[in-house]
């Protein structure tokens, strides 16, 4: 309940944050965004950083900027702002739908997109959505800026492609075409609200044909992962093929050794693997239903 003492550094800019991380690099230093991953860990004693660098005062890291081809979500944007963003719902609903599925309203008002994605909690909702959206993650470090495709970003439980001393500054979410569709569905833990399984889908269509598909899951594995066999089954398939969602979803664990599926007090690996198929099917059905319904039409 009571975090251990730490040195507190408030910064005004991303550059200052990078400098601060470097300056305290010889100590256990961590960035504070919304704090909804960090503070619970500090309260339970799982984390006791010596230095906390608070990004709360960095106005430039906050807000949603709509571009022509993509929408930029700056790192310190709260989940609620994403969940309520009409432009994102129109341009790529997988991300706001996942943001809306996080926790409860109080959590969504404080937790941040950057903090969530950079934490790579296996049961968080946004990572799968970022994979399905084919988002691009912007990082700033001592050597300057770089871009990391979401597909390369999530590496393991609580481990990402971010290097020590690097800061996630923004995420670009590409816009879908008018014939494309997306969905995020989730089976929440009845206790914690985190995802036992969450599946994100983006379908790009050409007429009745599925031209491209990105399907990713969180909750099931030690980090969010693309479900490549599902994607393979979908691409080239027809929207009119009523058996396609079930057939494709049935391949959700084809590439996965069973021991890789999480097994804990919340759910066994057998159940999670099964849920993964069920929720993949539901996500696919939802997305297919949305094709052409205008909910994600550009403009």
């Amino acid at each position: 309940m009571y975090p251990a003492s730490f040195e507190y550094v408030a910064v005004d800019s991303a550059e200052e944050a990078i400098d601060s991380l470097a300056e305290h690099g010889d100590r256990e230093v961590t960035l504070l965004a919304g704090g909804h991953s960090l503070l619970p860990m500090m309260k339970s004693g799982l984390a006791s950083p010596e230095v906390v660098v608070d990004l709360g005062g960095v106005d430039a890291l906050s807000g949603i900027e709509r571009g022509d081809d993509a929408t930029r979500i700056n790192a310190m944007t709260e989940y609620a702002a994403v969940a309520d963003d009409e432009g994102l719902w129109s341009d790529n609903p997988v991300v706001p739908e996942a943001a809306a599925a996080i926790g409860d309203v109080q959590v969504r008002n404080v937790g941040t997109v950057g903090g969530n994605v950079a934490h790579s909690d296996p049961a968080a909702d946004l990572p799968a959505a970022m994979l399905a959206a084919d988002a691009t993650i912007h990082a700033l470090g001592p050597d300057g800026e770089r871009e990391i495709p979401a597909a390369d970003f999530f590496q393991a439980m609580f481990t990402t492609a971010l290097a020590d001393g690097e800061l996630l500054t923004a995420i670009d979410v590409p816009h879908l075409g008018s014939d494309d569709a997306a969905a995020y569905v989730k089976k929440a833990s009845p206790s914690s609200g985190y995802a036992l399984v969450g599946v994100a889908v983006v379908l790009e269509t050409d007429g009745e044909e599925i031209a491209d598909a990105r399907v990713a899951a969180n909750g099931a594995f030690d980090h969010a992962m693309a479900l490549e066999p599902v994607e393979e089954e979908l691409v080239g398939g027809s929207l009119d093929d009523e058996s396609l969602p079930e057939r494709a979803a049935g391949r959700a664990t084809d590439d996965v050794e069973s021991y890789l599926v999480l097994d804990d007090e919340q759910a066994s690996s057998e159940y999670r693997a099964h849920l993964l198929e069920v929720y993949a099917e539901r996500a696919l059905e939802t997305a297919i239903d949305r094709v052409g319904d205008g909910s994600n039409a550009d403009g």
Binding site: S44, S189, P190, S191, S192, E265, Q266
Partner: peptide
């Protein structure tokens, strides 16, 4: 949904609201 479970060591594995539904 509710149950308090112990492991073989006597550790309460449903030790917080994160686990106890």
């Amino acid at each position: 949904s509710e149950a308090a479970n112990y492991d073989d060591n006597g550790t309460l594995v449903s030790g917080s609201m994160n686990e106890y539904a």
